[in-house]
Simulated scan of single mutants.
Amino acid sequence: MATLNITYNGMSADLPMELDGHVADVDVRRIAVEVVRSGGMPGMHLAHLRDDAFQNYVVDRFRGPSGDERIYLRPKVPFGA
């Protein structure tokens, strides 16, 4: 089990997902567009979201204490290295 967290336009939401192995960053962005458009992301439904809405977003991956994968899709920030 994995959790996809999307931060977009000041909103943030989590979606538990079943994944079959590693999912490429480009596919994470595509999946995010599809679930946000369809209303499948709890608390975040934007039916007219552009195809490239997450093109310049960062995909971060972490393992939780129980080993579950957490995938964060977030905007790039203007600070840090």
Rank of each mutant, 00 (worst) to 15 (best):
M1R: 07
M1N: 04
M1L: 05
M1I: 07
M1T: 09
A2G: 03
A2L: 00
T3N: 00
T3F: 02
L4I: 01
N5I: 14
N5T: 15
N5F: 06
N5A: 12
I6D: 05
I6P: 02
I6Y: 02
I6S: 03
T7F: 07
N9P: 08
M11W: 13
M11E: 12
M11N: 11
M11L: 13
S12Q: 09
S12R: 14
A13Q: 08
D14Q: 09
D14H: 07
D14R: 04
L15P: 00
L15Y: 05
M17A: 13
E18A: 13
E18P: 03
L19T: 15
L19W: 05
G21V: 00
G21F: 04
G21H: 01
G21M: 00
G21L: 01
G21P: 03
H22Y: 14
H22M: 08
A24E: 15
D25G: 05
V26P: 05
D27P: 02
R29S: 10
R30I: 07
I31K: 03
I31R: 05
I31H: 10
A32Q: 06
V33K: 08
E34V: 10
E34K: 15
V36E: 10
V36C: 10
V36Y: 09
R37D: 12
R37N: 10
S38K: 14
G39M: 13
G39L: 10
G40C: 08
G40H: 12
M41I: 10
M41N: 04
P42M: 07
G43A: 02
G43E: 05
M44K: 01
M44H: 10
L46Y: 13
A47T: 13
A47S: 14
A47D: 12
H48D: 11
H48V: 14
L49W: 11
L49E: 08
L49F: 12
L49V: 07
R50G: 12
R50F: 12
D51M: 09
D51E: 13
D51S: 09
D52I: 02
D52M: 04
D52C: 06
D52Q: 08
A53N: 09
F54R: 04
Q55G: 04
Q55M: 10
V58H: 06
V58P: 01
V59M: 00
V59Y: 02
V59H: 01
V59T: 11
D60M: 01
R61C: 00
P65I: 01
P65N: 09
S66I: 05
S66F: 07
G67K: 06
G67W: 04
D68M: 08
E69H: 03
R70L: 11
R70A: 02
I71P: 00
I71S: 02
L73D: 05
R74K: 12
R74S: 10
P75Q: 09
K76W: 08
K76R: 14
V77H: 12
V77N: 04
V77D: 07
P78D: 15
P78M: 06
P78F: 11
F79C: 09
F79W: 14
F79P: 00
G80L: 02
G80Q: 10
A81Y: 07
A81L: 10
